[in-house]
Amino acid sequence: MLFLAFTVGRTILPIYIISGLMAMVLFLTSTSIGPVVFPWETRQKTLERLISCPISIKTILLGNVWSSFFFGCIFSTIPMVLGVFIFGLWSYINILIIIIGIIIAAFAYSSFSLILSVPPTDTPASTMILTILIKFPIVFMSPLFMPISSAPLALISPLTYFIDVINIGLGEVSAFGTWGLLIDFSILLIFGFGFLFISFTLHQKTLQKRFRG
């Protein structure tokens, strides 16, 4: 539906369709597990026993990142394979750039999803509301299905840099100049580790509130 909302009535280059779809799928899938796991485990009463096991909260959170990462990676390859096949872009594709891009971006978005599970609730629906309120504005400010230069707020969105990576991987020139690819990877890594650091800090603060009297 989101894809149709962005594309109906517009003439879009095939490369932008693939990069836009991949960015949307990767972002939405890799941020779909993280916000639900903690409230779900709190509600299922499995979290308390897990915390009393000899593993740190960081390990538990990294486990969440890993599952979101894995989920996102698998689903984002589907639009890539379909798009490249439909539009016949096999001769332009640089598979290595795309794979590295998917891995780094999936890590960044999965780390971001951990922040969404910070509120100490045991109701997954509560985090879903917050998730929608944050995720959708990010999607709408991103340069999906269009050149990066034509989206004014694009630079603050973590999706922009993944879109640029995919565009480069499909034979397009980077929107950020000669060092574009390096800039994209670096900024995605900064986003990833930044989100991870924020989520570790916030979860340490709110974890205790999940087990109050």
Binding site: K45, T46, E48, R49, S52, C53, P54, I55
Partner: peptide, 11 residues
């Protein structure tokens, strides 16, 4: 935690 076992209430 390595030397303890725990069965929380309502777990």
């Amino acid at each position: 935690k390595q030397i303890m076992g725990n069965v929380p209430e309502m777990a």
